[in-house]
Design a binder for these strands. Structure first.
Lengths: 216, 216
DNA sequence: GCCGAGATCTTAACAGTGTTCAGATGTGTG
DNA sequence: CACACATCTGAACACTGTTAAGATCTCGGC
């Protein structure tokens, strides 16, 4: 996986770099495998020794950037003191990222998830999940609201993020986006705490399903 | 726009039909303009007399399906009595649709929004907006929470929808999706009502911006 | 009734795409 | 040093979006 030491050194990584650059320059779809190969200075077929197809390249890129996002979120959460504050910080990081890099975010979100998410570690969803656990343990979230929060918070944050990434919703400043996100999540948590603790079907994210299956 | 009475009658509509069919069969991206033309029994270049490019076809298809979604939502809302019930019904319709037709929904959501949204009438976002107005007038929403609700509800509903459409989140039944959506929106509204009525930057959706600009 | 004008579609071609495969080229191991 | 093998190249395939020039049909005005 690291340096290969052969002809190029790390062609796999270089191709991912070139692809990411192209996505940033021309949008999630306005680039070709041939272009990425040419930019690295290599023939198109060379890429096929590292990725089975163009789609596999996209999937690998998606894994890389979503992992980075997960790391950023975890880091943002760790930098804050209280459980509630660190959850909010993670959510803000999610939204801020898609706003800073909308094309890359679009590619990452749109990439087919099948057998991809297990390779993403830490997965953004898991970070939110862990922060919700912390919040629940700290008493900042009534136990009845915990299962609902997992679904609701992720959906809300992802909703804000995709609306902004797709250009359907516009905000004046990136800071405003973070602030809006925080208010939405806050409202959600207080609202959930208020509700009667009905049984919640707890939908699971696909990557969680897969991860637990692989472990068991 | 209607029947042309020429060679084909309504080639534009037929191409949109074929494209939509192909999207449904092979996913949002697994089809070509040439395939759609061939399915209609027409040469590829014929399509270029009705759409300036493949992208224009996609955009037009997106307009068509999002308009249908808006109509479905408005209809679902109208079928319910109370303001809160009708809002929930509209939100459920949004999510149910993306679950029934995930590939088409993905295409519609991902299509570039530039100069497209004004042609969508009723726009899904406007339907939610109108329902929130009704709810506010009926006293089911404290006035201070109204501006925040517009952003928050749309984000939450769109978040649930895209998570499901992209296969990131799975639910056992379509009904479960509607139920989850309703609970999230409900929690959101009660949470917003609880919060102090801070000034809310009120981000505007891009299509609302454009529409008001065109009117003024 | 017909005849030109213009919309509508076709044929042919272009550059560029993802993908495959036989072979050239370098690399580390026995 | 030579062999095995990972790595990359060159050429080709079918297919894509797109354009230009020309054939074909439809309709309004004489």
């Amino acid at each position: 996986m690291g340096k290969k030491g052969y002809h190029h050194g790390d062609l796999r990584g270089a191709l991912l770099d070139a692809a990411e650059e192209l996505v940033r320059e021309r949008g999630a779809e306005g680039w070709s495998l041939r272009e990425a190969s040419a930019r690295v200075g290599v023939s198109p077929s060379a890429a096929y020794h590292h990725f089975g197809s163009r789609d596999a390249l996209v999937r690998a890129l998606s894994v890389r950037v979503l992992t980075r996002l997960g790391e950023r979120m975890a880091q943002a959460a760790a930098a804050q003191a209280g459980a509630r504050r660190s959850l909010m910080s993670a959510c803000r990081a999610y939204v801020r990222w898609t706003l800073e890099d909308p094309a890359v975010a679009r590619l990452a979100f749109a990439a087919p998830a099948r057998d991809r998410d297990t390779a993403i570690d830490p997965h953004p969803h898991d970070v939110i999940d862990a922060e919700l656990d912390r919040l629940a343990e700290a008493g900042g979230l009534v136990p009845g609201a915990r299962p609902a929060a997992e679904f609701a918070v992720w959906a809300a944050v992802h909703g804000v993020a995709t609306l902004l990434a797709d250009g359907l919703m516009r905000l004046d400043t990136p800071e405003a986006a973070g602030e809006q996100t925080e208010r939405v999540v806050e409202a959600l948590l207080t609202g959930l705490a208020q509700e009667p603790a009905r049984p919640w079907p707890t939908p699971r994210s696909t990557h969680t399903e897969r991860r637990t299956r692989d472990r068991g």
